[in-house]
């Protein structure tokens, strides 16, 4: 009987284990292998990783823009998530649908629409022009790239914040008020620390795609604002050098891992110190 149980267990989980090994773990191993081998001889080398040095400013720029976007997303998403969480249940559902709907629509076309809005002769500049404000340089700037990131990934921040805020125990807020906290104190001492898990998962969901994007920077940025994603993409699609591309991807993964580690650490300590 036990033996049959074991066979059953393997039959159910085996195909999945094999699938994930072949299509998740092996590909990761291939990235590592390509990153550490010479494109011509196939021998072990660190040249690819060393070659990244000249692209370090690009890495810095990507992390900086993605971090600013993630921060802006927190600031913008928080009040929105709060308002939604406070709304009547039937209204909540509608509002959440409205937040999710843009996520399902073509992100390429939506980004292109921003090009039309921000162009030198675009809609925003014409609106400003009719108010007597001269044409501003909106597109092909870092600001435009950040705007594109915030626009595309904002829903990914609103959703986790909303789900944390709806589960918030009202009694804790009431207790803080009973114990003499002012409105702002309640927010900073009770509500905000309790929403830390939402902030963390939202930040991950915004930061990771933002730091590795290559479409947003291509459309809204200038040639000077090429990001890591652009570099990796061009290694695979234009100047074919998968070894360098794999090395960049490896560094990108390690970097994200470190960023997440630092963030979790901060958030973790924060909670501990409070208790």
């Amino acid at each position: 009987m036990k033996r049959r149980n074991n066979v059953f267990k393997l039959l159910l989980s085996g195909p999945y284990l094999i699938w994930m090994a072949i299509f998740v773990l092996v590909p990761m191993g291939m990235v590592l292998y390509f990153a550490l081998t010479d494109p011509d001889t196939g021998r072990f080398t660190l040249d690819n990783l060393m070659g990244i040095e000249e692209f370090l400013p690009v890495f810095g720029e990507s992390v900086w823009l993605a971090a600013v976007s993630a921060l802006l997303c927190i600031v913008i998403a928080y009040p929105v998530a709060y308002v939604i969480a406070k709304a009547a249940p039937s209204r909540q559902r509608v509002l959440i649908l409205l937040v999710m709907l843009p996520m399902c629509m073509s992100f390429l076309l939506r980004t292109l629409a921003w090009v039309a809005l921000l162009e030198d002769t675009g809609i925003l500049n014409r609106l400003l022009g009719s108010l007597g404000i001269g044409p501003l340089k909106l597109i092909r700037t870092r600001g435009a790239v950040i705007l594109g990131m915030v626009y595309n990934y904002l829903p990914y921040m609103i959703m986790p914040l909303y789900s944390v805020l709806t589960k918030l125990d009202r009694r804790l807020i009431e207790a803080a008020e009973d114990l003499g906290c002012s409105g702002t104190q309640v927010f900073f001492k009770v509500i905000l620390p309790l929403s830390a898990p939402g902030i963390i998962s939202g930040t991950t969901m915004v930061f990771v795609p933002a730091v590795s994007t290559f479409y947003i920077s291509k459309k809204l940025g200038s040639s000077g604002t090429a990001l890591i994603g652009d570099l990796i993409e061009s290694q695979f699609k234009q100047s074919y050098n998968p070894n360098l591309g794999a090395a960049m991807s490896l560094v990108l993964m390690v970097m994200i891992f470190i960023c997440m580690g630092i963030m979790n650490r901060f958030a973790g300590q924060d909670e501990v110190s409070r208790i």
Binding site: I22, F23, V24, L25, V26, P27, M28, M30, V31, F34, T204, V208, P209, V211, S212, F214, G229, I232, E233, F236, P242, G245, A246, S249, L252, M253, I256
Partner: peptide, 17 residues
Amino acid sequence: IPMTNPEIVTGISLALL
């Protein structure tokens, strides 16, 4: 892994395979 990895890394890793 596929959820937390950047999409571009998932894409190129599968392409390599």
